[in-house]
Design a binder for these strands. Sequence first.
DNA 1: TAATCATAAATTGTTAACAATAATTGTAGA
DNA 2: TCTACAATTATTGTTAACAATTTATGATTA
Lengths: 232, 232
Amino acid sequence: MSDAPKLTEQQIYERIWKSIAERRLPPGTRLKEERLCEIFGVSRPRIRRALDQLSHDGLVCHIPNRGAFVSTPSVDEARDVFFTRRVVERGVIDALKDNVSDDTLSALKGHIEQERQALRDGDTSQTIRLSGAFHMLLAELAASPLLADILRDLVSKSTLVTAVFQPKSDTQCGPDEHASIVDALARGDFEAAKSAMDAHLLEAEHTLQLEASGDGQPFPTDVLGAALTEDT
Amino acid sequence: MSDAPKLTEQQIYERIWKSIAERRLPPGTRLKEERLCEIFGVSRPRIRRALDQLSHDGLVCHIPNRGAFVSTPSVDEARDVFFTRRVVERGVIDALKDNVSDDTLSALKGHIEQERQALRDGDTSQTIRLSGAFHMLLAELAASPLLADILRDLVSKSTLVTAVFQPKSDTQCGPDEHASIVDALARGDFEAAKSAMDAHLLEAEHTLQLEASGDGQPFPTDVLGAALTEDT
DNA sequence: TAATCATAAATTGTTAACAATAATTGTAGA
DNA sequence: TCTACAATTATTGTTAACAATTTATGATTA
């Protein structure tokens, strides 16, 4: 009747991860085990293990005997995420030093073009996805799988942070700022690339409202089905 | 008969993690679920979840239908670990900029004194533990819990790397190099501190034999009981 | 009418039994 | 004597039933 391939817990982890990272599952969303079983068509232990992984990543907050919820970062955590990203992404550019081929550059430029297209189309979900993906692409082109792993975590946490502290999501990570990083790389000026990256991340942090209400938004009721079923 | 407190999976995770990080469980060691159940006196799912976490950290390699083994890093992974540590630990020093109080400095100096003592005593296990702990202490004194988490992972991976690629473990992370970092911090010279850290990590990397045999050491038979029971 | 306590429903956490897969050992044949 | 095949054993993976904890609802009392 449907997909018999019997999703592995890794795949479930990925799916939920992606839904959180692309903001289809907002902070505070309850992740009821039974409901997830229905959605993915697997038994509870499988779901449980996937949730454990997410909880270990800090994307999901697991309260004993209460259940799992999409994490709602605090102001301090928000600042920390951005600080850490600056540290890590400077490292990414260092790791790129010996890997800036023409292919690399055209891949990056192609990506930025996609970002511009999504922005023109007004496709918010796609825009969010691509903004994060740019940073990931940079990391994956670099010579450090470990840094890329670390950054994947950080980017997904950033998404949560912006979901909480940036009510109007139009002030996203802009393609132009990404372009200026790539331009610097194209010139071989890595110091400039690092500065551009730093400025870009600081800019993103400053668009957030990190003084006001820590939390207070109501928990949505049942977005799970819609959020998790799509395989964008 | 013994500890009834019923270890939580988090505690089990910590115990195994620590045993790996302190090199009591060498790379390649098989982690048989049933055996671990006996040792910790808990049921299999509990062990399973702990192993999943470790596997997600990359400290344990989980082969389907085969079981879990302490990871044996490759040469490329070894280099990557050290590269990433340089990136992250430079960030740690940045994060320390506003936190260098007298208490901080005396804590660091006290730690180095402990390291010297352990080295004098010829206590290898303690020396390994304290070497890693110095870097962790630095990270915990900094204002970034996230960086500290990331570094914890990296330090434990470093331990695996040195276990594989440094047959003679006497050429460890020396207290003197740690001292020169702290001295720079005491002077308020953060650039010097970063340089010292970089040099220290490069030095550590260079003492490894990263050209020769990738793997070839036999798997030890049953060190689990001895390695995990001790609560050092 | 509001607040508190008790009961009931729902959800997570745990345990135990079962099935499937892979490794090892032993045997038979060349 | 060595190789290949088969059977047994051991270990992981899965499923299902059970227990404990929490939350919500409703009734009773002040």
